[in-house]
Design a protein around this nucleic acid. Structure first.
Lengths: 337, 337
DNA sequence: GACCTCGCTGTAATCGATTACAACACGTTC
DNA sequence: GAACGTGTTGTAATCGATTACAGCGAGGTC
């Protein structure tokens, strides 16, 4: 292993031509048949593989894009990622995924790494946005598309979900089903989606004439199964609502699990609704009603915005919002399976 | 955006020193206080960010590692990834994840890209291994660790699960629980884990005196929920076994879902066991008994092998096998929750 | 035959960093 | 004061590709 890779000049030497000819043949530019043949053979004989780093330095492009997400363990990001990948791959870009773990400082470290790095562009889906991150984004002179909400003075392409609208759909659906003690187990409220969902829940509950009851609000430490479980237990130790909205599908699934352990039937005793409509919503027992916040669509749009910006760096900043849609399944008393 | 980034020479000019001094200061090498100050200030004033590509070209290292997996949607890879990331991050490497989609040609395209690319090393967890992939691996002169089984003549570090032992644990557990018609819904048998599991299932069933009944064997098109669901329906349209082993957790979860839809109780009517012991096993209803094939351990070991090889490129090839462990939960009649 | 085109090919510059080496200043030591 | 070590600094080579530009030969036109 690792004897020492052949370079263009070794190939040139071996083929008896100049480095320029080697490069031209390898890049499919004009060359005589004779030269083409000699170079191809020499390259094959030496097992030549071009050094992508050197090439990138010269051509100022890596043909790679990065996708940075808070938590690769969350299926909603998997869906976004697949959408992003599908769009970018046909344009010849390789997609690299980085997991930032949700901590702002990691996100920043990532941005600083990329700032200069090995990607021509970036799709970022941060879960927390603070001043430092905004500053890092401002400094970054690399095409970026943010999936999520960022301060409007930050001039960056972005595609956002309508979390509030989604929460409203869910709560109204539960209310329409006759539920009157609707609880909310949210993810952390110091995150962008967390805080938006919290506000929307309060607003909708009030609009529906539900008294604001602190016992019916819980905040998980994270948008994960484990954190959801802890918060679900805390909630149910205290009160038994007749419906619960989870801050995302993972939290909702944890809720269903804890409800089952306590002998509470879903949806008869407690209706459950999740958010994100991930693949998991279809396979729980009972299946999970969930608000589709358009993860696939957001991924696809983000990819397109990025590709467009790469082609036209000076175009105007675009902002797109994707509308939510409620997928009613068994856990809220509807659906067929 | 993108006005034109400052380079070392612009900084040098601005600070009134040579490029060498700039580089030295920025890399913390010896320099007088005067020079250090001037360079730092100039760099800050210009907003200088070093070009990582140029740096890599010269120092022949990117400080990045790649992790290529078949399907990022499968939580087992998420767990591996976290383990790999935890190990490599403390050594200052950034981890990039690539999803190969399980198709051999994509995996190869990835290898060819990386061959030369932007990573100092690679952890690869392929699901299918054919001659071309082996050939691509052989050609690749980049440190690689394969998670999974590869032909023994391929001299590459690898860490493997003991799928057969895992299947045996599962089947023996079901048999010990009194189950006598044990079905198996496997993933594709043209994959490495799929074929190993299939053979192990046949062997164990025979050893336990279970007649080989083709109606009790199904093969899903993929190790996913959707494919698992289709295969589960096909199985149950045909027969009702008293136990089913899923080729992985996703397939097992799909099975539980279909069983529930058909009014079959788990575990009373049909016991279900999965493989991989992913996070999802703990949150299904009922919770899923699963064989832990050591995904975290495999990720951790793979990362270590890779780091060791990076330090010592000529060390002997290492092969490690991680032993399986059965996690008994409700879906097979045991467990507490 | 002079002059132009046109198509290939080679030389050398270039991308933006790091670093080997030489030069230099300044103190010590004898 | 010569010789020498020590610590800084600058010049230029280097990493491995791409590519601008110039040169060259063959063929066509008048």
């Amino acid at each position: 292993m690792n004897v020492k890779r052949p370079t263009v000049s070794r190939v040139a030497e071996h083929a008896g031509v100049s480095v320029a000819s080697v490069s031209r043949v390898l890049n499919g530019l004009a060359a005589s048949d004779d030269v083409r043949l000699r170079v191809t053979e020499a390259a094959a004989a030496l097992g030549y593989r071009p050094n992508a780093v050197a090439r990138s330095l010269k051509v100022r492009s890596t043909q790679q894009l990065a996708f940075a997400v808070a938590d690769v363990g969350n299926p909603v990001y998997v869906e976004m990622m697949r959408a992003v990948e599908a769009e970018t791959k046909v344009r010849g870009y390789r997609l690299l995924v980085s997991s930032t773990g949700g901590r702002v400082d990691d996100t920043q470290a990532l941005l600083d790494g990329l700032a200069t790095g090995y990607a021509d562009g970036l799709v970022l889906s941060p879960v927390r946005v603070d001043g430092d991150l905004v500053e890092a984004l401002r400094r970054l002179d690399l095409p970026v598309v943010v999936i999520g909400t960022v301060p409007s003075e930050l001039r960056v392409d972005n595609v956002r979900a309508n979390s509030s609208g989604g929460v409203r759909l869910a709560v109204e659906h539960l209310h329409a089903g006759g539920r009157r003690r609707i609880a909310f187990v949210n993810g952390p409220v110091d995150t962008v989606p967390g805080s938006a969902r919290q506000r929307a829940f309060e607003r909708t509950a009030r609009a529906l004439g539900q008294p604001a009851d602190d016992a019916l609000r819980r905040v998980a430490d994270d948008f994960t199964l484990a954190a959801g479980r802890t918060a679900a237990e805390a909630l149910l130790d205290d009160v038994v609502p007749d419906a619960v909205l989870g801050g995302n599908d993972l939290i909702a699934i944890a809720l269903m699990q804890v409800l089952a352990e306590r002998g509470l039937r879903v949806p008869e005793d407690v209706a459950v609704v999740g958010m994100d409509d991930t693949e998991l919503a279809g396979v729980t027992t009972p299946s999970l009603t969930s608000v589709d916040l358009g993860s696939r669509a957001r991924g696809r749009l983000a990819a397109r915005l990025l590709l467009e910006r790469l082609e036209e760096p000076d175009r105007e900043v675009q902002r797109v919002t994707v509308q939510p849609r409620l997928r009613v399944r068994r856990s809220s008393g509807g659906g067929t399976r």
